[in-house]
Amino acid sequence: MDESHQQLNAAQTSAQLALLHRRFETTQTHFPDVAWQDIALALQQQTTALWSLAQMEASDGEPSVFAYDADKGLLWFGDAAAESPKVRRSLCYDEAALHARKQHPPQGSAMEQAAAMGVSLMNSEQYQVLQQLWPCDLKTSSWLATPDAIRRLGGALFGNRRYDTVFVYHNGADSYYAARGFRCVLSLKIDLISY
C-alpha cells in the first residue's frame, strides 16, 4: 500500500493518541522507565506506526503497550481486547492455506489481514507476556505467528486461556472458526528523553 494512504489526519491523530494515552496510564506502573511524552513523540515521528495502531483499533483490538526492550529501544503494542477481535474472526492462518482449501473457504486469512494493517501476528512468547498483564481469550482463541518448521507441515499455532492457564495449541492452517481471530503486535522505536 502507498504510504501516503497510511496517514491519519490531525483529528484522527489526536483522538488515537488520546486513547493510547488513557490505556498507557492504566499500565504505566509496569513500565516505570517510559514516559508517555516519549511514546507520543515517537508515534508522531513514525506516522505509519500510528496508522497501524488505528487499524488495530478499528478492528476492535484495543492496542496497548505490553512490553519494552530497553536494550533495543523498542516498545511493543499488542491487542489487549478481552476476547479475540470479533471483526478478525473466521479466517484461516495464511494465504497458502486459503488457496489450498477446496471446500467452503473463509473470506480471508489472518496473515493477509495483519499485513494489510502494517502489523505482525503475535507470537507465542509475546502472547504469554500479554496474558500476564491482561488475561484474555477466556471464551475465544487467537491465531499466533507460527514457526516455519510447523507451517511447512501444514500446521499453525493458536492460543487461549482456560482454567486460569494459557495454552498454545496447533491446528491445520486451513481451519477457521467463528470464535478464533488473531492478535497483532507492533514495535515502535523509542528514544527516552523525558528523564
Rank of each mutant, 00 (worst) to 15 (best):
W36K: 04
N160A: 06
Y176Q: 10
S120F: 11
G78M: 09
P63E: 06
L17F: 02
Y163G: 08
Q44R: 15
R152W: 02
L74G: 05
L186I: 05
N171R: 14
C184E: 12
E125C: 05
E83G: 01
Q103N: 12
V166E: 06
S142A: 13
Q126C: 06
S187P: 07
R89K: 12
A35M: 04
L98Q: 04
W134D: 05
D148A: 15
Y68W: 15
Q46V: 03
S64T: 06
Q45L: 11
W36C: 04
Q28P: 02
Y163A: 13
T48F: 11
L188R: 15
I193P: 00
A82M: 03
A42W: 00
Y176H: 12
A82Q: 08
Y68I: 01
S52Q: 05
A15E: 11
Q131D: 13
F182V: 08
L41S: 12
T27S: 14
H170F: 01
M111W: 03
S52R: 02
Q45Y: 07
S124P: 04
L41Q: 15
G154P: 03
F182G: 13
Y169R: 15
R162S: 14
Y93A: 10
A42Q: 01
A67V: 03
M1W: 07
N9R: 00
G73M: 10
W51T: 08
A15K: 11
L133N: 06
S141K: 13
L133C: 08
M111Y: 02
Q44F: 01
T27Q: 12
Q46E: 15
V34G: 11
T48S: 14
D69E: 13
S84T: 15
A81P: 00
Q103Y: 05
R89V: 07
L98R: 03
R22G: 10
G155A: 08
Q132R: 07
S120Q: 12
A114Q: 02
K72I: 05
S120N: 08
L188T: 12
D148S: 14
G73F: 13
G154N: 09
K72C: 06
W143H: 14
V185D: 12
L19M: 10
G159S: 04
